[in-house]
Design a protein around this nucleic acid. Structure first.
Lengths: 232, 232
DNA sequence: ACCTGAACACCGTTCAAGT
DNA sequence: ACCTGAACACCGTTCAAGT
């Protein structure tokens, strides 16, 4: 019976939701979120645009699904390791996911229907902090400052016009030589720092972890104080 | 001679670049960046879409100009006040500008042609830190961590589905009652924190300044250490 | 049950014309 | 010098049809 029903179009495996989402993530990774249209996605899948609407209600739901794929790539905090190293590992993992999927920066928290991986992640984060003795209020504070830093760093990383330390030098040099000669007079401090950056390079990972440790130190140092109000 | 040249259309003042940019910022503030199209902008100005292209080369240059208007609203750091209060005031001012112009979050650093207000701002920031004795390298570190925090906080503020402490409660309540009953079992820690947030409210300004002071403390405490390498 | 084709109401931008 | 109108190559999405 099975073979009597299979038609000549058995070439391409039947479309399903996961295949649609995976293809969409691939396109967005390669060409940016603007390069992802229902039409380019359909082309990639070897299908007509309207075929996608059988698996996803529209572009919004498509993006909801893509964002939850990124959330699923973020390591869950392991509370048994202690809150500090759990929070550190989670932040590092999240920055990694966001630099692999730059289109996702700015979308991670903005979806009205948070997906299961998103909920699981936040639940684990709250759980780790609460079990480590943070009050409700301080759990919110810690989440807020760490997430802001991770999102903001990822945003800068997405947004700055170089990817590697070597490229940072090239871009700085190019900018220096492109600017009108007046720039060095009008913005002397800026030029000085740009020239120095060019000389010594810029490593995103080193920079990220330096700031992260500074913030974790701040949380740790303030903790006894915050613990005073632990009942609340 | 002047009046012989003035035609019947003297009703609307002649279009110019500043008027175009100001109108565009207004539309983006009210309706979001998606609500700003060359066509809605033309309507607002009482003009046909193509008229705009005489004052701006296209949508990219339009947005470049809009972003620099936001930069111009950010208070320049006042080095005479000491680096810490200068950095604090600048960060608070920048968050203010970004919450008045939420469409600008994510665009502040992404323009290939930084405008004059942007360059002035960064020059003043570098100047304040360098004059306060920070090494080149540490000037970069401080800028990186502070900007990441401000951008990331603004991103969360733009992105979270409530604006005020009261609304945060309403949203939390609605989310709680909308979720399938299993949510409380699947995500107990998350639900607990959400319920607590609902009870006590959430104030963006308080939250922002708490994290900001934590980071400034971290910078201050690490400073002597960093100063050791001040020559470099 | 799943896919298709044509159409609609939008975009940003070009080009040739108007005054 | 500045503005206009029509057109082009794109969007996301609806609807009626095909198999």
């Amino acid at each position: 019976m099975a073979y009597t029903l299979s038609s000549g179009s058995a070439r391409r495996p039947r479309l399903n939701r996961d295949a649609v989402l995976a293809a969409a993530v691939g396109i967005a990774d390669r060409t940016g979120i603007d390069g992802l249209t229902m039409r380019t996605l359909a082309d990639e899948l070897g299908v007509v645009p309207m075929a996608i609407y059988k698996h996803v209600s529209g572009k919004d739901e498509l993006i909801d699904g893509m964002v939850d794929i990124v959330w699923a790539e973020v390591e869950l905090p392991d509370a048994t390791a202690g809150w500090r190293s759990a929070m550190r590992a989670r932040a590092v993992s999240m920055r990694g996911a966001l630099s692999r999927h730059r289109w996702a920066v700015g979308l991670m928290e903005s979806r009205m229907q948070p997906g299961p991986a998103n909920l699981r992640q936040h639940n684990a984060m709250m759980g780790c902090l609460r079990e480590s003795g943070f009050s409700f209020r301080n759990t919110v504070h810690v989440t807020s400052v760490l997430d802001a830093y991770v999102y903001g760093f990822a945003l800068q990383e997405k947004t700055l016009p170089f990817d590697t330390a070597e490229e940072s030098g090239q871009v700085a040099e190019q900018k220096r030589s492109t600017q009108p000669e007046t720039a060095a007079q009008d913005y002397p401090y800026l030029m000085e720092v740009v020239v120095e950056l060019m000389r010594s390079g810029y490593d995103y990972t080193v920079e990220f972890e330096l700031g992260l440790d500074l913030i974790l130190d701040g949380i740790e140092r303030l903790r006894p104080e915050w613990a005073d109000e632990a009942g609340r």
